[in-house]
Amino acid sequence: MMRQIALYGKGGIGKSTTSANLSAAWAEKGLDILQIGCDPKHDSTRMLMHGRVIPTVLDLLREHQDDHPIDSIIHAGYGGVRCVEAGGPDPGVGCAGRGIIATFQLLEKLGALKGDMIVYDVLGDVVCGGFAMPMREGYAEEVYLVTSGELMSLYAANNIAKAISRLSTNKRSRVRLGGVIGNGKNMESEAELIREFAEALQSRMIAFIPRSPTVQQAELNRKTVIEYAPASDQATVYRSCADAILMNCEFSVPVPLTIDDLEALAYRYLKE
């Protein structure tokens, strides 16, 4: 059965790096993966595409009003991962959220939403209904929050948990929190903090990805870690994370923290 997962988290926290490496790890197992970048920055799939910036769905929609061949939208990347970038308007104009909705409508119309797994890599915060689109009925049923131990990152993850909680009140909604992926920033006791945060949400930390220079080296070589350094410890971490998600069958409706509780949690781990 096809699984659809969405990765959400604060901007710059490493969602795209994590998504691309997970997709690469799954592709290595022979799974048919579709990764959709849902961010106007359209750089979600760049490492899978060896640094090539692929044309976005919205650019194609704009340039070719009627004819949208599927191969102009979906581009094969590392390991056969099918890569799509939604794209969006230039900063400061238009409505990027509507762009996500238009992208999804086109992908559905073209019958492109298929494979063993679809990975939605969504921008920093659920700023409007358009960016909640991947969580709506018929799309991702599993959401993974990517966060570091920094307060603002936890804050953004908590906000997304609120969105999941709200959307799941709709009886037809099947979206659930699959877990929290810790993406380390070299903070002391960071994994423990993220684990406690995840448990406070009534979920769990499904993986912790420590900070590693291998990630930056791979990116400078325009590759995922899985491709650039397949035998590295960091590649093992990503594969473990990918396996944990594949095996995951614990999904929950999160209980978001109050801002006071969130701050108190972060404060307890604060080291002078």
């Binding site: 929609l61 230039d90 990027a96 762009g99 238009a102």
Partner: peptide
């Protein structure tokens, strides 16, 4: 149209 809504209508 939707195009201007997404990309701006100026």
């Amino acid at each position: 149209s939707e195009e201007e809504v997404i990309f701006g209508g100026e």
